[in-house]
Design a protein around this nucleic acid. Structure first.
Lengths: 171, 171
DNA sequence: TTGACATAGTTAGCTAGCTAACTATAATCT
DNA sequence: AGATTATAGTTAGCTAGCTAACTATGTCAA
């Protein structure tokens, strides 16, 4: 995501703002700080999951299945919920099936469709991973109290409102 | 980064917290919200850059070179500052050189080493991209005033202090 | 009822990251 | 000086994403 390690300091930002007067220095600093931390958090999460032989993509599939009472979803729905393409989901399911964590079941009503079900081994894997993930995450977030967390949500929502500025084709 | 679109709502979190009592519900919600927004911002930035034929990796190389008075850095230093491996940097420089935005220059003192320099065409590309990026970013962040931004920095720093919880091999 | 379109899943081939191994050169330590 | 070790850059091959194209099946309307 944001690979850049060498974030611009005030001096660099001012030099750039001189050439490009559109620059909003404190906005840039906040934006980059947010991306930098989120990237580090995502990498830290991957590190934690990889100790259990998983990465985010495959792990989220297991979690999404566990959310269902039937422990079952179709690949298309999984893809949509997981935010990846159906093609990517095919690969994730392949890997999970190979490891015995999920199984593919034919749908008798619609023969185009299949169901993906969490196996007992998949549930056991989650029972191993989730307590580790949750207890690390609890420690990670311990620096923010409930009020901070509420304020953080509000600020993130307000940035989210502005995100369209990047996609607007007008410029 | 965080592909997942279907973030857990309160109900799902409580169901999971019942099985895994380590769960810190509001911490999980804040963590996922942060990753979700940052991923969307990063994708939005890529979309903006791709209109100019760039993506983050190549764009940051140009920006890092422009920060230097000499417009020049070595691949190793670029890799370190950009937060990618030297192998990845080789590929980024290849692409930028092919497009004429940077050039490779031999170092006469150390024949293992080369210099990468921003060309006039590279500078022209930045002069095209940066005003667009900066004005979009300004609009994106317009929902936060200076005080919000300061508070956001503080909260991000406090989360950053806890990030080691994920890498601690003890659990 | 059959022709056109839509949907579910897969396959093939692309990209930007990565690690590990390699080449060439420089530095260091007997 | 010669052997060892370190450093700069590249190459090769891996992964998890992507898009586009393909197969099979279902739906719907003339």
């Amino acid at each position: 995501m944001l690979q850049l390690r060498n974030l611009p300091d005030k001096e660099v930002l001012q030099k750039f703002a001189q050439r490009y007067p559109q620059a909003d220095i404190s906005g840039i600093a906040a934006f980059l700080h947010l991306l930098r931390l989120a990237t580090d958090l995502s990498n830290a999460l991957d590190l934690c999951l990889s100790r259990h032989g998983l990465l985010q993509g495959r792990w989220w599939v297991l979690v999404l299945l566990m959310r269902e009472d039937s422990l079952t979803l179709t690949p298309s729905v999984l893809a949509e919920k997981a935010g990846v393409t159906r093609a990517t989901m095919t690969g994730l399911i392949d890997g999970l099936e190979r490891d015995g964590l999920v199984e593919r079941l034919m749908d008798k009503r619609d023969r185009r469709s299949i169901s993906v079900r969490l196996t007992p081994a998949g549930q056991a894997k989650l029972d191993e991973v989730m307590p580790d993930y949750y207890s690390r995450l609890r420690r990670c977030m311990a620096g923010l109290d409930e009020e901070d967390r509420e304020r953080l949500h509000q600020m993130l929502d307000r940035i989210n409102l502005g995100i369209g500025a990047f996609s607007d084709p007008e410029g």
